[in-house]
Amino acid sequence: MNPVISIRNLEKSYDQPVLKGVNLDVNAGEIVGYIGPNGAGKSTTIKILLGMIPDFSGEVTVLGRDIRTDALEIKRHVGYVPENAALYEVLTPAEFLLFMGRLYGMDDAVIRRKAEDLLQLVGLADQIDSRMTTFSKGMRQKVLLIAGMIHNPEIIFLDEPLSGLDANAVILVKEILARLREAGKTIFYSSHLMDVVEKISDRIVIINQGTVIADGTIEDLRHQVQSGSLERIFQGLTGDDSTSLRASEFFQALQ
């Protein structure tokens, strides 16, 4: 089976190198958890995969197409849920989703029907025509989730999709991701919430300082580091094992 995402020797620098030769294949129907410390290059990778950053070196293909030459066609078949809840607050969910859907060339009636159904399912039916200025972070995140999936994409990229969601909403999103996988969709997402990543990912990719340092199922990784939870594995792999010492020093300094 051909991978739906293929990354070869991906390098990208701004002032300093951010990605230093990333290699990665993702197969259809996988849920890939992409984790790493702050500044490791997670969001940059996702933006490159989406065709939002055109200048990089290396080979990147998504759905069998070269991201450099076919970005437009790829964008039609992938969805994106950004991290920082950036949307036009003064619009209502109905208006925002209509706008988004149109950019994907969808029919107005279809967008409206889907928007209503989906907002209903995440518990925002009453707010469908209210401006989002007053929405909580979790409510906005729900709207962004719908906006990223309304065109029924093959691959969904999620950047911290669960931030700001309450416990019930997290469970709901996890369930939704599981359904999407059953339907053969590929999900690629970055997160800091280790316990969630551990539970819902088929595969975990850990990136640190611009390179992939671990790639496999949670069992593989456990085996590799001889350690229990993903948090411990993460700590072991990213080389930060001085945290408990630093915590006690921190406490000392408060005295």
């Binding site: 989406l50 994106y80 036009y88 003064v90 988004m100």
Partner: peptide, 17 residues
């Protein structure tokens, strides 16, 4: 210009030819 200038990411993500 807009207070929500960050929301312009949608143009980058969407397939606008």
């Amino acid at each position: 210009q807009s207070e929500d200038f960050r929301a312009a990411w949608v143009y980058d993500a969407a397939p606008v030819a």
